[in-house]
Measured scan of single mutants.
Amino acid sequence: MSGIALSRLAQERKAWRKDHPFGFVAVPTKNPDGTMNLMNWECAIPGKKGTPWEGGLFKLRMLFKDDYPSSPPKCKFEPPLFHPNVYPSGTVCLSILEEDKDWRPAITIKQILLGIQELLNEPNIQDPAQAEAYTIYCQNRVEYEKRVRAQAKKFAPS
């Protein structure tokens, strides 16, 4: 494992614990031996107030490669969400998460999670990743928002 990646992720964890947006979660997972795995984080993004996503808490896994922060983490909703920019596998399609697009090593975990929260309610229809959600979003916004509200209710924190 890269010392650069681990040191950056340790800084990220410290900064997150000191200050993070209300309702968001970002925690490194534990290895079988109980030690912390900084390369694999369990996160959760709350649906934004005043949107059909409100009330939901959407679980996301963030996986970092050894060359982080040169390369972005892979962000994957578990379980996958109904959304035009979420692949059926759950992987998020967002330009700041793509090395050859808008990724920059200075982007923080907090910025990534806030960017994904923004994307939930403002899909990028130029870059669809899920045919069904994309089609319904474009053709029947009322039905799309109904499905999103049902999903938010399903993923409401207990």
Score class of each variant (00 low, 15 high):
residue 143 E to D: 11
residue 6 L to S: 07
residue 129 A to M: 00
residue 62 M to R: 04
residue 13 R to Y: 02
residue 19 D to E: 14
residue 93 C to Y: 00
residue 10 A to F: 11
residue 62 M to W: 01
residue 125 I to N: 07
residue 123 P to K: 01
residue 142 V to F: 14
residue 152 A to V: 06
residue 70 S to Q: 07
residue 115 G to S: 01
residue 97 L to V: 14
residue 126 Q to H: 10
residue 69 P to D: 03
residue 23 G to H: 06
residue 53 W to P: 04
residue 24 F to C: 08
residue 140 N to Q: 14
residue 109 I to H: 04
residue 82 F to G: 04
residue 140 N to L: 02
residue 85 N to E: 06
residue 121 N to I: 10
residue 118 E to L: 10
residue 11 Q to T: 14
residue 40 N to G: 04
residue 102 D to Y: 09
residue 34 G to W: 07
residue 156 A to Y: 08
residue 119 L to N: 04
residue 137 Y to D: 02
residue 151 Q to M: 02
residue 48 K to E: 08
residue 74 K to C: 15
residue 147 R to A: 10
residue 129 A to N: 00
residue 17 R to I: 01
residue 19 D to R: 04
residue 76 K to C: 11
residue 18 K to E: 05
residue 123 P to D: 01
residue 87 Y to F: 14
residue 140 N to E: 12
residue 94 L to K: 00
residue 153 K to I: 15
residue 12 E to C: 00
residue 57 L to V: 08
residue 62 M to P: 04
residue 21 P to E: 01
residue 19 D to S: 04
residue 106 A to Q: 05
residue 76 K to A: 15
residue 22 F to R: 00
residue 157 P to K: 15
residue 22 F to D: 06
residue 61 R to P: 09
residue 51 T to D: 02
residue 65 K to V: 07
residue 155 F to M: 05
residue 7 S to C: 10
residue 81 L to W: 01
residue 6 L to I: 05
residue 89 S to Y: 15
residue 26 A to Y: 01
residue 98 E to V: 15
residue 124 N to D: 05
residue 67 D to A: 12
residue 47 G to Y: 10
residue 150 A to S: 12
residue 26 A to E: 02
residue 131 A to P: 09
residue 109 I to F: 08
residue 64 F to N: 06
residue 29 T to W: 03
residue 74 K to S: 15
residue 61 R to T: 13
residue 43 C to R: 03
residue 87 Y to R: 01
residue 28 P to M: 05
residue 21 P to N: 07
residue 49 K to L: 06
residue 123 P to Q: 00
residue 38 L to E: 07
residue 30 K to M: 09
residue 33 D to S: 02
residue 128 P to G: 13
residue 16 W to R: 03
residue 71 S to V: 05
residue 74 K to T: 15
residue 97 L to F: 07
residue 122 E to P: 02
residue 100 D to V: 15
residue 140 N to A: 15
residue 51 T to E: 02
residue 115 G to E: 02
residue 152 A to Y: 04
residue 142 V to Y: 14
residue 40 N to I: 07
residue 64 F to L: 09
residue 91 T to N: 11
residue 65 K to G: 11
residue 49 K to M: 09
residue 57 L to W: 08
residue 136 I to H: 07
residue 105 P to L: 02
residue 101 K to M: 08
residue 84 P to T: 10
residue 133 A to C: 09
residue 126 Q to N: 10
residue 15 A to N: 08
residue 121 N to S: 12
residue 114 L to A: 13
residue 70 S to A: 13
residue 53 W to N: 08
residue 148 V to T: 04
residue 83 H to E: 00
residue 19 D to Q: 00
residue 93 C to T: 00
residue 120 L to H: 03
residue 17 R to F: 01
residue 28 P to R: 08
residue 50 G to M: 01
residue 107 I to P: 03
residue 17 R to D: 00
residue 82 F to S: 02
residue 28 P to E: 02
residue 37 N to P: 03
residue 119 L to A: 01
residue 89 S to A: 06
residue 92 V to G: 01
residue 132 E to H: 09
residue 90 G to C: 07
residue 133 A to R: 04
residue 61 R to W: 10
residue 104 R to K: 11
residue 88 P to K: 11
residue 66 D to S: 10
residue 90 G to E: 00
residue 101 K to H: 14
residue 125 I to L: 10
residue 100 D to Q: 11
residue 138 C to Q: 11
residue 120 L to K: 03
residue 137 Y to I: 06
residue 55 G to D: 14
residue 26 A to C: 08
residue 78 E to L: 10
residue 103 W to E: 00
residue 54 E to Q: 12
residue 147 R to S: 08
residue 63 L to K: 13
residue 57 L to G: 06
residue 66 D to Q: 11
residue 139 Q to I: 08
residue 105 P to N: 00
residue 147 R to N: 08
residue 113 L to H: 03
residue 108 T to S: 14
residue 10 A to I: 06
residue 97 L to D: 08
residue 88 P to A: 14
residue 97 L to R: 02
residue 9 L to A: 07
residue 44 A to M: 14
residue 36 M to V: 08
residue 91 T to C: 15
residue 27 V to N: 08
residue 83 H to D: 04
residue 74 K to A: 15
residue 48 K to R: 13
residue 2 S to L: 06
residue 73 P to R: 03
residue 44 A to T: 09
residue 134 Y to F: 09
residue 91 T to I: 14
residue 122 E to F: 11
residue 29 T to C: 13
residue 40 N to F: 07
residue 8 R to N: 09
residue 14 K to H: 05
residue 136 I to P: 01
residue 64 F to I: 07
residue 49 K to G: 14
residue 43 C to S: 10
residue 101 K to P: 08
residue 108 T to I: 15
residue 113 L to V: 11
residue 121 N to T: 12
residue 112 I to F: 15
residue 7 S to G: 08
residue 118 E to R: 11
residue 21 P to S: 05
residue 90 G to P: 06
residue 107 I to T: 09
residue 119 L to M: 10
residue 125 I to A: 08
residue 67 D to W: 02
residue 45 I to V: 14
residue 73 P to C: 10
residue 74 K to G: 15
residue 65 K to D: 04
residue 125 I to E: 06
residue 11 Q to W: 11
residue 138 C to G: 08
residue 104 R to A: 10
residue 7 S to P: 14
residue 41 W to N: 08
residue 85 N to F: 09
residue 157 P to Y: 09
residue 154 K to P: 01
residue 76 K to D: 15
residue 74 K to Q: 14
residue 27 V to S: 08
residue 27 V to P: 08
residue 91 T to V: 15
residue 54 E to V: 07
residue 20 H to W: 01
residue 20 H to C: 05
residue 99 E to M: 11
residue 38 L to N: 00
residue 157 P to E: 06
residue 141 R to H: 13
residue 3 G to Q: 05
residue 139 Q to S: 07
residue 85 N to P: 02
residue 91 T to A: 15
residue 144 Y to P: 04
residue 123 P to W: 02
residue 130 Q to A: 12
residue 119 L to T: 01
residue 120 L to S: 03
residue 129 A to R: 02
residue 16 W to Q: 04
residue 37 N to T: 12
residue 24 F to A: 02
residue 141 R to T: 12
residue 103 W to G: 02
residue 88 P to H: 13
residue 78 E to G: 13
residue 9 L to N: 12
residue 77 F to L: 07
residue 148 V to C: 12
residue 58 F to N: 01
residue 42 E to I: 02
residue 79 P to D: 14
residue 133 A to T: 05
residue 89 S to R: 05
residue 64 F to P: 06
residue 134 Y to Q: 05
residue 141 R to S: 09
residue 53 W to I: 02
residue 70 S to L: 14
residue 29 T to E: 13
residue 158 S to Y: 01
residue 62 M to N: 02
residue 35 T to R: 02
residue 112 I to E: 04
residue 103 W to Q: 00
residue 102 D to W: 10
residue 36 M to E: 05
residue 91 T to Y: 10
residue 42 E to S: 11
residue 130 Q to N: 13
residue 138 C to E: 15
residue 146 K to C: 11
residue 44 A to V: 08
residue 30 K to F: 07
residue 37 N to E: 14
residue 87 Y to C: 01
residue 50 G to Q: 10
residue 136 I to D: 10
residue 148 V to I: 15
residue 89 S to M: 15
residue 138 C to S: 13
residue 68 Y to E: 02
residue 75 C to E: 03
residue 107 I to H: 11
residue 118 E to G: 09
residue 11 Q to A: 15
residue 112 I to V: 14
residue 49 K to N: 10
residue 50 G to P: 00
residue 25 V to E: 02
